[in-house]
Write a protein that binds this DNA or RNA. Sequence first.
DNA 1: TATTATAGCGAACGATAGGTCACTTGTCAA
DNA 2: TTGACAAGTGACCTATCGTTCGCTATAATA
Lengths: 200, 200
Amino acid sequence: MAKDTKERILDEALRQFSQKGYDGTNIRELTASLGLVKSSMYKHYKSKEEIWNSLLDRMIVYYNERFGSAENLPPVPDTLDELVAMTMRMVDITVHDERIVMTRKLLSIEQYRDDRARQLATKHFLTGLTEMFTYIFDGMMNKGLLRNDDPKMLAFAYTAPVSSLIHLCDREPGKAAEAISQIKAFSRHFIKTYGSDRNE
Amino acid sequence: MAKDTKERILDEALRQFSQKGYDGTNIRELTASLGLVKSSMYKHYKSKEEIWNSLLDRMIVYYNERFGSAENLPPVPDTLDELVAMTMRMVDITVHDERIVMTRKLLSIEQYRDDRARQLATKHFLTGLTEMFTYIFDGMMNKGLLRNDDPKMLAFAYTAPVSSLIHLCDREPGKAAEAISQIKAFSRHFIKTYGSDRNE
DNA sequence: TATTATAGCGAACGATAGGTCACTTGTCAA
DNA sequence: TTGACAAGTGACCTATCGTTCGCTATAATA
């Protein structure tokens, strides 16, 4: 039971931190959302800051489990259309998985206050995706699906616009549907531009 | 003199809000940085929240003065190299102008807490740049510099990666030089990809 | 010169924050 | 059955927050 509450505190902290920021969140409200009084929290964490650090620890573990190992890399698509489809599957997950959305919001909010948040933000928002698609595009070039080019540059040119629209979804959920269809349009435009000639 | 202090309070508020967020900033420190005691602030603003709102007001005015009117649009480049050069000039300004940097940081931090900050964030980070380069690319297509394509799509494909590297500069100033050279590499890659054939 | 508004000051206010502590309850092992 | 420990409670502490108020000094106005 103890561990359960400890995890639930982290879950609720992620929720409230991602809405109101670390400074804007107070322990009384946080614990009240879990049906506890604030002093109970100190049975599990010795301070508010320890919640924050544990939350970052968990985020790092979660990220590494999900994207850290080479085995978790997605399969290299066999067609250009499959690249679009795979992209849209990934976007759907990342935009609708509440925990992932809250994580992005939290990193946006706290990236200038906490050094580990800063590093995680760069990984989540930029380098992580670029590395993944560098691998994918390299594979697709070897398969003759994409014209020969710098796979890293292409990965960056592909993921950065997608990422910026994902941020838009986070910021303005009402525009999510439109943003997602923009991502699809962009992805199709991308394969039209960079797709190998023999596939046209 | 009154108006001077009133402006200086906004300047310092921008500085501290952009580092520590609205909730993380307290009036005592803010006014102390100006050589005042906290109670003096209330001669100029009736509350902390009024500082926040006035700051947003000023940001909106500033943005509209700078990017709002069609007259302020940059001239359409006459060569592809000139597009790269113009981009780098704009990047240099936006990355090194302290006020602009602080404004971006502030919007990143507060975009999920305040509705006007949310709207401004979308404008600053996405739609503003896209609109500007839609105009530029449309002009360049008419001049035969860029191959015929959807100028809006190209503008998005161009500005989003640049924008993501500008965010990187904000987040990790130590990597700014590298990020800026990446922008240049990306810009060159872009004109190689989309430049009209007759210019190669 | 007399008056008045302005800008700054220092003391104090109530509210709320994070955190501590003695105490109770329930569970499980010895 | 008993003892120990984990988990939760409520009262309380101190610090700090935003804010108010009465006072003073200055400078412009009448």
